[in-house]
Amino acid sequence: MVLPEKVSKIKTFTKNERDLKLKKAVASLKSIDKKTCRLIDFVGECKLKPIGTPYYVIIKSIISQQLSTQAASSILKKINQYFDTENSIPKPEMIRDTSDKELRSCGLSFSKIETIKRISNSYSSGKLSDELLYSMSDRDVVNSLCEYKGIGPWTSEMVLIFGLDRWDHFSIGDLGLRKGVEKWYGLHRDDKMKIQKFIEKFSPYRSILSWYLWASFDTENWE
């Protein structure tokens, strides 16, 4: 894997600083237009936050590719039961040393097994790490992860939003987000170019808007 020659130092915040920054970001989004204001008022308080380490989100996102939430959750549950890891993801070395047949018994496809093992091998060898991803610019994160076969923009963007807490991403490949734009803004879900252009006005808080669009379909499960 070719690593970026330069990495950007990303500022981190305390919880109180982050909470205040998030409230200001939501207020900024509400000021953009009436439709966004209605969306935010419908969902309520923004509860966007990292769901785990970058490694956790990478593996979880690979498992979730092209699957319903229910199907992905079922596979994760089987993996947790097999490795006795409760609600976590097995350590890279555990996945690396597990046979494809055993991973297949958890419901993973062979292509996803190959991708997960590529990531686990890179983490085990030190070629990739959470610390390295934290230090990278958003563009370098996407470029580096997309060098792995089986990882594309959607998976990389989920890592940015839910693993690295980066706030300016809208994954145009996510059908749920495009359905949300159609529902709240009237743009057809299949007109990706128009949606991409439209979403630009929500920068630098496109991840937060994304969270609201997702949450608008299921307010109870986005705690």
Results as ranks from 00 to 15, higher is better:
L3A: 12
S8P: 03
I10N: 08
K11I: 10
T14A: 12
K15W: 03
L20F: 01
L22D: 04
K24D: 01
K24P: 00
S31C: 12
I32G: 02
D33P: 13
D33N: 15
K35H: 13
L39T: 02
V43F: 06
V43D: 10
G44H: 01
L48F: 05
K49Y: 06
Y56N: 10
S61L: 10
I63L: 06
I63T: 04
A72L: 09
S74Q: 13
L76S: 15
Q81N: 04
Y82Q: 14
Y82H: 14
Y82L: 15
T85L: 10
E86T: 13
N87I: 03
I89P: 02
E93R: 08
E93Y: 01
M94A: 14
I95D: 07
R96Q: 15
T98H: 07
S99T: 11
E102W: 00
G107P: 05
G107C: 06
L108T: 06
L108K: 05
F110P: 09
S111H: 10
T115F: 12
K117F: 04
S120N: 08
G126I: 00
G126C: 02
L132Y: 09
M136I: 02
D138C: 06
D138Y: 05
D138M: 03
R139A: 11
S144K: 13
L145Q: 04
P153D: 12
L160V: 05
I161C: 02
L164G: 05
R166G: 09
W167L: 13
H169R: 10
F170V: 02
L177V: 02
K179I: 11
Y185D: 00
D190M: 03
M193D: 15
M193V: 15
Q196I: 09
Q196P: 08
K197A: 11
I199R: 00
E200W: 03
E200M: 14
S203A: 15
Y205R: 07
S210W: 07
A215L: 04
E220N: 14
E223K: 15
E223I: 15
E223N: 15
